[in-house]
Design a protein around this nucleic acid. Structure first.
Length: 337
DNA sequence: CGTTTTTGACCGGCGC
DNA sequence: GCGCCGGTCAAAAACG
């Protein structure tokens, strides 16, 4: 019979009975009394002995599982620490290289650049010789942020030397933004509140959709660039890659870029169509969702670990388990007078 | 007329 | 050394 009970009532029954804080607690008290009166006074039957053995076995298994879970979490934390350390070491090495080789390289071999570009660059580049410290909050679209806002020296190197490879000296901020767009709309425009000037378009090898290159045109010396390309997997998704920090604040909400001169925007301020706002919200929602999911996962792991530790250490857990099991036994066994 | 977009050409890095 | 490829330039066209 006990075998039938165990087969017919698998683990859900156990889990139901383990809700310590639920109204079954009151029933557990009464059932405990019943257990003591009915079962303890009477000679233990072999069924009860089998149940107790099963109970011990389940408790032991639960304890083992808890230990395994703790070990797993500990190993996970250890591995995560190693990864973090390796990434920090790589970032430190990269920063050191960029602060030495890039500065020296741009000064030692200026002939690497185009001649006409250098003349233009020196003429206009002095307008903003040092990158301002502002725009620390401009990374609001960042999904993957490479470095922190304190590493602005890389930007100062990056601006005068135009053809610095991205892996030699990464811009101070590289972030990606995914925007859902109408596939019928062929324009590669991602509304993010800034003014952008398109300076090139290219069809890349790994994606049939062309990639558009934009510069921030709100401030003359703003080093921020943006690449926009439709996702190869989903053409309805626009992937915008931002490089660098804005050296100005976010412009006031008005028509972004698209064939609107600043002179016309001064007097007649029109309310922007809702589409930019919607896309902006979509970007922020996606990023918030990613962060929330990561946080929720970490919280779940932490919660599971705490639950395992609490349950295995709590001396009342076994008593509660006994009461719960006994209560279920009394419920399921036909009342024998 | 000033600004922005388009688009072919050019440049430099990288792999073979 | 050569070709490929991504990024950029700049003249011409388009636009308001």
């Amino acid at each position: 019979m006990d075998e039938q009970w165990m087969i017919g009532q698998p683990s859900p029954t156990l889990s139901l009975g383990l809700n310590l804080g639920r109204p079954t607690a009151r029933r557990a008290v009464t059932t405990k009394v019943l257990v003591e009166e009915d079962f303890m006074s009477v000679k233990k039957s072999h069924e009860v002995e089998a149940l107790e053995a099963e109970l011990r076995r389940v408790g032991e298994e639960n304890r083992r599982l808890g230990e395994m879970l703790r070990a797993l979490v500990a190993k996970y934390g250890e591995l995560q620490g190693k990864v973090t350390g390796m990434m920090a070491a790589a970032a430190a090495t990269q920063q050191h290289q960029s602060s030495t080789t890039s500065e020296g390289g741009s000064a030692a071999s200026p002939s690497r650049k185009r001649v006409r570009s250098d003349s233009l660059e020196t003429a206009g580049g002095n307008r903003n010789p040092s990158p301002p410290l502002a725009a620390a909050g401009s990374g609001q679209f960042a999904v993957t942020v490479a470095v922190g806002p304190d590493q602005t020296e890389c930007t100062s190197v990056h601006e005068p030397s135009k053809r610095v490879r991205a892996d030699e000296c990464k811009p101070s901020r590289v972030s990606k933004s995914y925007v859902h767009a109408d596939p019928a709309d062929l324009s590669l425009v991602v509304k993010d509140g800034y003014q952008w000037r398109k300076y090139g378009q290219k069809v890349t090898k790994d994606n049939p959709c062309p990639r558009a290159y934009f510069r921030c045109s709100f401030a003359p010396g703003c080093p921020v660039k943006k690449k926009v390309q439709r996702s190869a997997d989903d053409v309805t998704v626009l992937v915008a890659t931002y490089e660098g920090d804005h050296n100005h604040g976010q412009p006031a909400a008005k028509h972004e870029g698209a064939k609107k001169s600043d002179a016309s925007a001064g007097a007649a301020v029109r309310i922007s169509p809702p589409a930019p706002v919607v896309q902006l919200q979509q970007q922020q929602q996606q990023q918030q969702q990613l962060k929330q999911e990561a946080a929720a996962e970490a919280e779940r792991k932490n919660l599971a670990e705490q639950m395992a530790a609490t349950l295995t250490r709590d001396p009342g857990f076994k008593a509660a388990l006994v009461s719960a099991l006994s209560g279920r036994i009394l419920e399921l066994t036909p009342s024998n007078s």
